[in-house]
Design a protein around this nucleic acid. Structure first.
Length: 463
RNA sequence: UCCCCUGUAGCUCAACUGGUAGAGCAUGCGGCUGUUAACCGCAGGGUUCGAGGUUCAAGCCCUCGCGGGGGAGCCA
């Protein structure tokens, strides 16, 4: 008989039917009435399935009474309406096979709640907990919803390179990729000849797929990427990872307003999808992690985001009756405290800030007619901060090259990127969304290290 | 990288102004129960992160190192 998922059985009312389930024991309670209750979880959903194992089973004394938290079992039995309180259905076991026992003396997971810091040290076992199971399911749903959203709108999923020689955007410090024998080189002194390296030049892990995505947008119309991204910044915060996943849509024949519209539609789609498909997990987050999660997602799924210009943001902040550590004035980038004030105090929700001064933004962002600002937008959300950064791209070759030179870059190094403007240039726009920040926001989890299976941060690459 | 906090049993934490380590949970054993964070009793379990120092005496004070957390910067 084929194994059934607990998720399905809990919704079933096919009492009397024979089923097979398999999973890991969460807890066991014995009754002198002649049976033992086993709470079984198989990861298909948050809830456990109650197994009632009678003492007539041949391995009752020898194995079932010794089952402990963490043990793997396969159960054959009849689905039944539960006689007890607390659950609708249960399985009356006809056979309980211990697939893999679990030594309670050394098993790191406990039945009671454990701190997230501790669970990070056992990242290989933490998916067996309620919280990390729920996060894994939410993360999966949001990834699936991403592909569904873009596919419905005719966007092509493109794969951009992981290894790259261009540190174009200055988006962050790159991890170097090399096959050179560093240990041998260290002894020699002198400059490194990257001509001898695998690619014949210095290469690193991508910090963004945007430039390559632009090339495909300027041929296929609308595209998006969804892949790993690497930043070798020494960032030690609860919202930064050295390795994270980023979604980067890019649209041809589109301007900044189209870009903001897309960002908003996309986020609303994600929140609706999560509410529809992860209801039980979101209830869990609301109960145990952050009491406002469900209400927030429901509100955002149904309402438009606020949009303001950078100039308006500065005016609002200057009028605020709060003493900021860093005073606000036109021309300086918004600090965390300013972003938080806007999202958490003024608008009490997400806000899209548009048209930043050109000096504080990247060279590829389209220069506005005022020659002072660029067509950039950031989507800011409470708690997490910047979840999306995007812009309309500079599609005029002369302006682009001028902006490169201002940034100290040599246009000749970006010849292929210039070609996109040289030949059949079109207005186009896109953005990057930090996937983990999304999961963080949708779950209410405080630390980004707890929404990715195996987090990579400075001095931590275990597992 | 900078600032602040922190590191005691498997886990969460306690130990007054420095006097030589304790509780709950977990675990093991026993009791009780269609049980459900079960409950009751007994038991085992600690070179108090590491290295120096001050002191008659250090978990507690000082210095350095390592780990963890929060905030800032960088960004997604």
């Amino acid at each position: 008989m084929k194994r059934r998922l607990i998720k399905e059985l809990l919704r079933s009312a096919a009492y009397g039917s024979q089923v097979v389930v398999a999973g890991w024991v969460r807890t066991r309670r014995d009754s002198k009435g002649g049976f033992s209750f086993i709470e079984l979880n198989d990861g298909s959903c948050l809830a456990n399935l109650q197994i009632v194992a009678p003492n007539t089973l041949p391995n009752y004394e020898g194995e079932i009474l010794r089952l402990t938290t963490g043990a793997a079992v396969r159960v054959t039995g009849a689905l039944a309406k539960s006689q007890g309180k607390g659950q609708a259905v249960e399985v009356q076991a006809a056979a309980v096979e211990v697939v893999g026992p679990c030594d309670p003396e050394t098993y790191p997971l406990q039945k009671k709640k454990m701190s997230f810091e501790l669970l990070r040290e056992v990242a290989h076992l933490r998916p067996r907990t309620n919280t990390f199971g729920a996060i894994a399911r939410l993360r999966d749903a949001l990834a699936f919803a991403t592909h569904a959203f873009f596919r419905e709108r005719g966007f092509l999923y493109v794969h951009t390179p992981i290894i790259t020689a261009s540190d174009c955007e200055g988006a962050g410090q790159m991890f170097q990729v090399t096959t050179l024998d560093l240990a041998a080189l260290a002894g020699k002194g002198g400059p490194v000849d990257y001509g001898l390296d695998f690619f014949g030049k210095r290469t690193g892990l991508t910090v963004s797929g945007q430039l390559e995505a632009e090339a495909y947008a300027c041929a296929l119309g609308n595209v998006y990427t969804f892949g790993p991204t690497f930043r070798a910044e020494n960032s030690n915060t609860r919202r930064h990872l050295s390795e994270f996943w980023m979604i980067e849509p890019e649209m041809a024949f589109a301007d900044l307003d189209d870009d903001a519209d897309l960002a908003e539609d996309y986020l609303r789609h994600l929140f609706s999808f999560a509410l529809e498909h992860c209801g039980e997990d979101i209830d869990f987050f609301t109960q145990r992690i952050d009491p406002s999660v469900r209400a927030t997602l429901e509100r955002l799924a149904a309402s438009a985001f606020k949009r303001i210009t950078y100039e308006e943001a500065v005016a609002i902040l200057q009028k605020a009756s709060v003493a900021f550590e860093f005073p606000v004035r036109w021309g300086v980038d918004l600090q965390s405290e300013h972003e938080r004030h806007l999202t958490e105090e003024v608008f009490k929700g997400p806000v899209i800030v548009m048209h930043y001064p050109k000096e504080i933004k990247a060279f590829y962002m389209r220069l506005n007619d005022d020659r002072k600002t660029v067509a950039a937008m950031d989507v800011l959300i409470p708690q997490v901060g910047e979840i999306i950064g995007g812009s309309q791209r500079e599609d005029r070759l002369e302006v682009l090259e001028e902006r490169m030179r201002d940034a100290g870059l040599n246009p000749a190094d970006y010849a292929w990127y210039g070609d996109l403007r040289r030949f059949g240039s079109v207005p186009h726009a896109g953005f990057g969304l930090g996937f983990e920040r999304l999961v963080q926001f949708a779950s209410g989890m405080q630390n980004i290290r707890d929404v990715i299976p195996f987090p990579r941060t400075p001095r931590n690459a275990d597992f």
